Simulated scan of single mutants.
Amino acid sequence: MATDGGAARSFREHEFKVPERLVKKNEDMQRWESSQAYSEFMGFVTIVNGAVRGLNMKEDVPCSPAVDKLLSLISKLSHWAKEIPLSEESHQRFGNKAFKTWWEKVGDNASVLIGDLLPEDVKGAVVELEVYFRQSFGNSTRIDYGTGHEFKFCAFLCCLVKLGVLCEADAPAIALRVLRDYLELMRAMQLRFQMEPAGSHGVWGLDDFQFIPYIWGSSQLIGNPNLQPINFVDKAIAENTADEYLFMACVTFINTVKTGPFAEHSNTLWGISGLEEWTKVNSGLIKMYKAEVLGKFPVIQHFPFGTILTMDPPSG
């Protein structure tokens, strides 16, 4: 699937390079929002958003060999997290330092893990992909994680689409299998290593850690005859449907880590529950994502650009 609506370009005999940070001041944000990377990333989000409309995670969606390899990779990362002993340092206040051990192991093996995903003619893309991949799981110094890291993981998937590793038929599985397993990994990591939210807006943010699953998850619920937006604030309903809908799984995780009235600890989500239709929730969340994640300098200043996702103007 072409992420910008055009034909996918060929990367055979292409010279890849290590991505670098190019948004260094607020004035650079306009260039970013007019870039090929921005256009193609939002194209990717939009294509997957449409592909999962009305689908639930229990349905039998096609999984290509590339998707199966991604799922195996995430499973391996989860296994590593479980086998690394936690640090017992008594003076730790935030985060468990064992996370750094896991993070370094992922980094040390990143090139091999990613190389296994790629056909021979684009093996050189590892140099770009591993930068997004390594930054997808949080910061090892601060032991925190947030929507900027989630953005890097989705950018990694977008790159795989541009390279032709993933195709249009994979779009449902990208959300309902790959993102699902990534989210489950990160929730387990947050609990095991006591990871802090990165750049949290607190009670006024959509979620301390995630955003994309709310977009694709609300698309899943469009046209659902049994679940309306007002229903997700019911803890029992959210929990009973968490294995079917990304949106409900996110709400259920919030309910496990936060206490008190939902309207108080998740005020933005509470407001969304007042909308009448999931189509309005979905379109509103896309606008919010552009403004609150892709439109924020503190997030984009950390995003690296290479030759797959570039700061050049869109072609054509």
Rank of each mutant, 00 (worst) to 15 (best):
Ser10Leu: 05
Asn224Met: 10
Val251Asp: 02
Leu117Tyr: 05
Ser283Tyr: 01
Leu166Ser: 12
Ser273Ile: 11
Gly95Trp: 05
Gln210Cys: 03
Asn282Ile: 01
Ile272Phe: 09
Thr279Ile: 14
Asp144Ala: 00
Arg134Lys: 15
Leu285Ser: 02
Asp207Ile: 04
Leu118Phe: 09
His149Ile: 06
Gly107Glu: 08
Leu157Val: 12
Leu179His: 08
Leu246His: 01
Leu117Val: 07
Gly54Lys: 12
Gly295Thr: 08
Thr101Leu: 09
His302Ala: 00
Asn109Thr: 11
Gly205Ala: 08
Leu163Gln: 03
Lys82Glu: 15
Phe209Pro: 11
Asn49Arg: 11
Pro304Gly: 09
Ile143Asn: 01
Ala249Glu: 05
Phe297Arg: 02
Val131Asp: 14
Val112Thr: 12
Phe303Leu: 02
Ala188Ile: 05
His91Arg: 11
Asn240Thr: 12
Ala238Gly: 02
Gln30Gly: 14
Glu40Tyr: 02
Pro225Val: 08
Thr241Asp: 05
Ser90Val: 14
Gly43Tyr: 00
Lys123Cys: 10
Met1Asn: 13
Gln190Tyr: 00
Trp278Lys: 03
Phe41Gly: 02
Phe247Arg: 00
Asn231Phe: 04
Arg21Ala: 14
Ile230His: 05
Val178Lys: 15
Trp80Asn: 03
Leu275Tyr: 01
Gly146Cys: 06
Phe209Asn: 12
Lys296Asn: 03
Asn139Cys: 02
Trp102Gln: 04
Asp60Tyr: 12
Gly146Val: 06
Asp116Met: 06
Glu292Ser: 06
Leu309Pro: 04
Tyr245Pro: 00
Asp181Leu: 13
Ala242Gln: 14
Gly223Gln: 06
Arg12Asn: 15
Val178Trp: 03
Val233Cys: 12
Ala249Phe: 01
Thr252Leu: 03
Ser219Glu: 10
Phe303Glu: 01
Phe94Ala: 08
Gly274Trp: 07
Ala155His: 04
Tyr245Thr: 00
Pro313Thr: 10
Leu22Tyr: 01
Glu27Asn: 11
Lys58Asp: 15
Leu227Gly: 03
Pro65Asp: 12
Ala236Cys: 07
Ile308Val: 13
Leu86Pro: 05
Leu73Asn: 07
Glu244Met: 04
Ser75Pro: 00
Ala81Lys: 12
His302Leu: 00
Glu292Tyr: 04
Phe153Ser: 14
Lys24Val: 02
Leu166Gln: 15
Ala8Arg: 13
Trp204Asp: 08
Glu104Val: 15
Ser39Val: 11
Tyr38Asp: 11
Arg192Lys: 10
Lys258Gln: 03
Ser266Pro: 00
Ala81Asn: 10
Val203Ala: 07
Cys154Trp: 12
Tyr289Gln: 01
Lys76Phe: 04
Phe193Glu: 01
Pro65Gly: 08
Gly205Leu: 07
Glu292Ala: 02
